[in-house]
């Protein structure tokens, strides 16, 4: 589904990703763990198409197609979704208006009819209820004044509505209380099937108790330094990153 080959990325002349290789298969849930500043968010931004970064080498393939030349919205239309570590506040844009614009833009790109206002409302209401989002929140400007946890739930609501085939979740668990963590994990698990893939960036085993990953990758200093099964996360929990920081340097 997602294949990243020998990715080198700089920002303002500073090298952040150093020949990163990663493959996430269709239907797979992969987790990335790694110390602060190792480049996890950078990776997620570069995959989503943020402009500030310079890719000096490498490829990012989505379903075999190199997406590096694509605009961010084209990547979204191709089925990519990024749940932001720090979701942006958009003053003056009602959450509902935004959700509608996003859904319609994606429907249009697939040549589908826009949802009728009634169907749209129903769909959003149902998805919000599952995530424990109060419908009143949808009238408020997007993310403005939302608590940390509310913002993260809103990211998952967007994922639930857009049904991306490849979703990257950047520390969606941070800031969530115990119940919210479970609800968000259920949101992910509900979409888990042979056609959807997830890349879950996290610092904590806790999330992985709820979303059982198929593979776990360790990232340090801008590369994947170890890959394996869920047991890796447990090892990290015990021993920390010391051995990898040494290895990557």
């Amino acid at each position: 589904m997602l294949e990243i080959k020998n990715l080198h990325v700089e920002i303002d002349g500073k090298k952040i990703l150093n020949g990163l290789n990663l493959k996430v298969n269709r239907g797979e849930v992969a987790a990335i763990m790694g110390p602060n500043g190792s480049g996890k968010s950078t990776l997620s931004y570069v995959v989503a198409g943020k402009e500030d970064y310079t890719v000096t080498e490498g490829e990012i393939l989505l379903d075999g197609v190199n997406i590096l030349e694509m605009e961010p919205h084209e990547r979204a239309h191709a089925g990519l979704f990024l749940a932001f570590q720090y979701p942006l506040e958009i003053p003056g844009v009602a959450t509902m208006t935004f959700l509608k614009a996003a859904l319609n833009a994606q429907a249009k790109s697939r040549g589908e009819e826009e949802l009728s206002p009634g169907d749209f409302m129903k769909k959003v209401r149902a998805a919000s209820a599952k995530l424990g989002i109060n419908p009143d929140m949808l009238k408020r400007p997007l993310n403005v004044g939302f608590s940390g946890g509310e913002k993260k739930r809103m990211e998952i609501l967007q994922m639930a509505l857009l049904e991306p085939k490849m979703a990257i979740l950047d520390e969606t668990d941070s800031g969530l209380d115990i119940d919210a963590l479970r609800i968000v994990a259920e949101g992910v698990n509900a979409q888990r099937d042979p056609n959807h893939a997830f890349l879950v960036i996290t610092h904590y085993q806790r999330l992985l108790d709820h979303i059982r990953p198929d593979t776990v990758h360790v990232m340090a200093a801008g590369r994947i330094v170890k890959s394996g099964g869920p047991e890796i996360a447990l090892e990290l929990e015990e021993r920390g990153y010391a051995e990898y920081i040494g290895a990557a340097a």
């Binding site: 989503a48 198409g49 943020k50 402009e51 605009e71 961010p72 919205h73 990547r75 979204a76 239309h77 979704f81 990024l82 932001f84 979701p87 942006l88 958009i90 935004f98 614009a101 996003a102 833009a105 994606q106 790109s109 967007q158 857009l162």
Partner: peptide, 10 residues
């Protein structure tokens, strides 16, 4: 970028 990442053209 946030809006674009949700599928809105620039």
């Amino acid at each position: 970028f946030y809006l674009q990442a949700r599928g809105l053209p620039k």
